[in-house]
Simulated scan of single mutants.
Amino acid sequence: MPILRDSRRLTRAARRIAADLIARALVSNGFRPQHHTAFPLADGTYGDHEGPALSLLVLGDSIAASVGTSTVEETLGAQCAATLSHATSRPVRLRVLARPGTTTGFMKHQLRRALRHPHPPGVALIIVGGNDIVAGTPLRLAAKKLAHQVTQLRQAGWHVLVGTCWDVGHVPAVRNYLRIPLSCRSRRLEHLQTTAVRRAGAVAIPLRDPRHSTQPELFAADRIHPSAHGHALHLQAIARALTSTRATR
């Protein structure tokens, strides 16, 4: 269907333009999303154990994709896969579906790919919400869509972990006068996500951390995305839920 494909291309282009304009308005260091969204591809099998591999999917936005890291080993996906493999003594097959700029609504495209995953379901990790904050998405709508996506994964047999929205107001490049309103929206979305995903049968993991506002080394050179240290901090929050999940037993 050529017309449908052309329409989708236009929609994607419109989203990229909108994201660029929003980012320019919010930040003060000349950040350009399309210039800073590369990330190492971490897909693969982790662990040298024998036996059937456990599937791990990572869905969501630039944090989930590990923008800000420079090597595969630094990525959140690779660290989660290695942690899970060590805890379960099983190889872990990682697939990162997350893409920079993703909002909760736009994650539906990743969800379709997840539901077509050719291997038995295991653990799905979702991190999303920061782009909803800056894009002005109605927060209740974002939480409702997230709950629906979690429900679909759960019905397909996946055990779902959700890293809830971090505090966008702590991002160093954000203009000072926007820090308080962005922090308020971030905390509101975090609360709504937590309630929604728990009702849908997922585990909610808070990623908001006061250290983001006091330790600049937690951010990459663009002063927007987490650095390798920042992603390691997120791993600390995720690791306990990751290794205690029912899918690892």
Rank of each mutant, 00 (worst) to 15 (best):
H159G: 09
R8S: 14
G47M: 03
T37L: 08
A239C: 04
L192V: 11
H148G: 05
T75E: 06
T75L: 03
A202S: 11
I224G: 02
R223D: 06
H234F: 10
F219P: 00
E73C: 00
L141N: 07
A202F: 03
R154V: 15
L207E: 02
R116I: 03
I205K: 02
V67H: 10
H212S: 04
G157L: 11
L139H: 07
L115S: 09
N131W: 06
N29W: 10
V27E: 03
A196D: 07
A65D: 05
V174L: 14
G101L: 09
I63N: 12
A64E: 00
A65Y: 06
L41P: 00
L57M: 08
L139M: 11
S66R: 01
W158V: 03
K145S: 10
R249Q: 15
R113N: 10
T195N: 06
I3Q: 13
T243E: 05
R8W: 15
G68P: 01
A18M: 12
P181I: 13
T83Q: 05
Q149M: 07
Y46W: 05
R198Q: 15
A202M: 14
A241P: 13
R5L: 03
L115A: 09
H119S: 08
H170G: 02
P118G: 08
L242C: 02
H231P: 01
P40G: 00
A220G: 08
G105L: 08
T75Y: 01
A64G: 01
L153V: 06
C184Y: 01
A42F: 00
H148R: 09
R99D: 13
D6T: 09
H229Y: 04
D6F: 12
Q155G: 11
V58Q: 04
G60V: 03
T104Q: 05
T102E: 13
Q215E: 14
Q34P: 10
H36C: 08
P172H: 06
R223E: 08
V203K: 10
R16W: 15
D167M: 03
R246A: 15
A142K: 08
R199F: 04
P210T: 05
L115K: 12
D48E: 11
R116T: 15
I126C: 13
A14Q: 13
V27T: 12
A82D: 08
I238A: 06
H170I: 01
V160H: 14
N29H: 03
I22R: 14
S227D: 09
L146Y: 02
G60A: 06
D6R: 14
F31P: 00
A237V: 04
G68L: 01
P2E: 13
T194A: 14
D222A: 01
R12M: 15
M107W: 07
H170R: 05
D167Y: 01
W166L: 11
N29T: 06
Q193W: 14
P206K: 08
W166S: 09
V150R: 11
A53Q: 07
V27R: 12
A196V: 10
F39W: 06
Q34D: 14
H170C: 07
N131A: 12
G130W: 02
Y46E: 08
G105E: 13
P2M: 11
T194F: 10
R95K: 10
A239Y: 04
L111V: 08
R187I: 01
A81R: 01
G230Q: 09
W158P: 02
A202E: 08
Q34Y: 14
A173F: 06
S66E: 02
P100L: 10
V168M: 13
A78L: 00
Q34T: 12
A38P: 00
R187K: 04
